[in-house]
Design a protein around this nucleic acid. Structure first.
Lengths: 127, 127, 127, 127
DNA sequence: GTGGTCTAGACCACA
DNA sequence: GTGGTCTAGACCACG
């Protein structure tokens, strides 16, 4: 199975699911139209409650990542949401601000930060 | 006053305070030994609850950013805590992973991402 | 073929079928006595489940729009059911209430709303 | 209390709540910044479950109608979402299409339809 | 106090 | 089978 939850991670379970699905859509592991496991299947295989999976799927739907239809399995959306681009970039800037702050407090150099980012982007390409 | 809370920002108020203090320490606006406003002052000037400010200060202390002593004002710590460097970098990598994922879902190019980071680092230098 | 399902439309498939039949009856494209495709034909040509088409036809029959007879093809009913007029108008008022609410929240002017409605009514006339 | 649920109404409870809040925002009964009852309060006064109210509030938040903050009461948002105007108008057109169809099947004249809409808009103004 | 997350189990509507 | 709605009750995080 291509999803897992980390008990030690502070973040809520539903967010971990969301992020993992997003990663796999972002790097092409999950292609538009691909079916996701049903909420019941995924809940059972992760050992968590059906509703926890459902809340993750709902948020993914609201963000335009997946499509949910009554009676059908969830699928990766065909239009990977290039829509509210300006909003998204505004949010990204906020994340970048915090990232840079943390990097500076840690004493991480500008070069190292750029290198870590390139590494992460390349990992994704190859997967 | 050098602190403000943004109602439109979804993040909890105490986190906004923490992040702003961290930013100013990170970019040198707040230097080691500098005094912070008392819990009461800050709470009143921001129009928020005492508990909220206090919990922010406590977390900043736990992270080694500030020093709290009974009866004294809070001060920026003299050792900006570059100790647990490996832990910090691990956490940073997690943040980078999510940032890169979001950037890819938004369709942001690698170049633009690097440029946005440089911008943020330069903004801080000049402040 | 004069029917299609829209994957991007959130509404259930059976409802899309019902609404399209209703539209074509409403604007005269489908006249009383006209034959509809069999459940099997329609299901196959739309690539959907038999049950889905069947439930749509059943509901259309219940609303008096079509006639179903064992072994015969479905046909548009001869009495376009203007009977329960008061009920229908009550339901319409509810729809209007919601439409007006959404229009106001969107900032749509009264004039523009009227124009959009006229457009829709005229489109149908010409078809 | 300014909210009620209708047992006979087929629509889900959470949608009834959403629509009533939207109406009151649309006609000015609820002004930006106004506090809504807490999920627990509203659930109790309506005799329904806390989570049902919560799901209504969540959707209202996602639509930009209200603001939710941990530890605070829900409030009417200050920017009543004039943002994705084109999307909203597209959705409105779909609603109009269905409304016109129903009106035609009922035999409602164009004039009567316009009059019903004006009535509804005026009701809201006076409230 | 507030909302946020998670579990648990029921029943309904759609395909 | 699928997802959608509702109830019920626990515990956590924020103000």
């Amino acid at each position: 199975m291509w999803l897992s939850i980390n008990e030690k991670d502070n973040r809520p379970i539903y967010l971990q699911i969301i992020n993992q699905v997003k990663e796999q859509v972002g790097n092409g592991t999950l292609k538009p139209g691909a079916e996701l496991p049903s909420v019941r299947e995924l809940a059972q295989s992760l050992g968590i409650n059906l509703h926890t999976v459902r809340s993750a799927y709902l948020k993914l739907r609201d963000q335009g990542i997946i499509e949910l239809r009554l009676g059908r399995k969830a699928r990766i959306a065909h239009l990977p949401a290039p829509l509210n681009r300006r909003d998204a970039e505004t949010r990204l800037k906020q994340s970048i601000k915090e990232l840079v702050t943390e990097a500076q407090l840690t004493g991480l150099s500008r070069e190292r930060l750029h290198r870590l980012i390139d590494q992460q982007m390349d990992v994704k390409k190859e997967e």
